[in-house]
Amino acid sequence: MASHGPAASPRIEVRKTYKLYIGGAFPRTESGRSYLVSAADGTPVANACRGSRKDLRDAVRAARAACPGWADRTAMNRGQVLYRVAELMEGRRDQFVAEVAQAEGLRADRARAVVDRAIDRWVWYAGWADKIAQVLGSSNPVAADYFNFTIPEPTGVVGIVAPETSSLLGLVSRLAPPLVTGNAVVVLTSETRPLPAITLTEVLATSDVPGGVVNVITGRKAELAPVLAAHGDVDAIDVWGVADAARRDIELAATDNVKRIVRRPAGVTDARFDWLDDRAAERPEWIAAYLEMKTVWHPIGV
């Protein structure tokens, strides 16, 4: 009686379907389209969703709905929730290292350094949640009998065109600053290197970040970034990952509803930016870019 034991046949790997992340769920693109994602060395890796305008609009709606709840969390709670993202990334460290190495063509030790820094960056920004108001807020000594103070509040829905080159560390460095103060975010991932971002959504989904607070779309930036920029219910847009040649058109589209436009510093290129440099890549100004300052007056008297 011949039996074919497990050792006799190689196990067939269960592959992952890479999906979008909208409102806490993992839909495939409504358009039914995909595009082939290759490793840095050109080896085909997977089909990623080629997200559509409709996917993007769904993501903005989910973000808008999630805004008030996230903004109303206490600052300490938001800090803990984002710290937990770091905890869960730590548990998936080897997976991230493999994906980043594959996507960015890095040697293992370099990929490890990148992933470690991405995890640590969450920790750095998470710690700002309950401190930024004390650094950026103020009590204002007006020349009359009024109590006058200024407090920061989240801008609302933020669109992020993620860095094209740094698929995970660059993304985390742009994503954490708006999140920590209570904004909700729609991310357009690196077009050529989207897979680490999708794995990050799996971490977000199993952390305590409420559904809709982060929404992630993969696809063609040339098709989707103008839609994100022109969307009337997006309050701010990070154009870091927009190619220089396209930046003016994207920014023009963003002016229709007076969006806050957040840019790379002058002279900085996406491909050359050193995300491992904490002094350059960890900036309270990047948190401030997605804050509105609210000033309150009240008379002092009997």
Partner: peptide
């Protein structure tokens, strides 16, 4: 709050 149109150089 309980006032309106107040301005001051120290007040953003």
């Amino acid at each position: 709050a309980n006032t309106f149109n107040r301005f001051d150089p120290t007040s953003p």
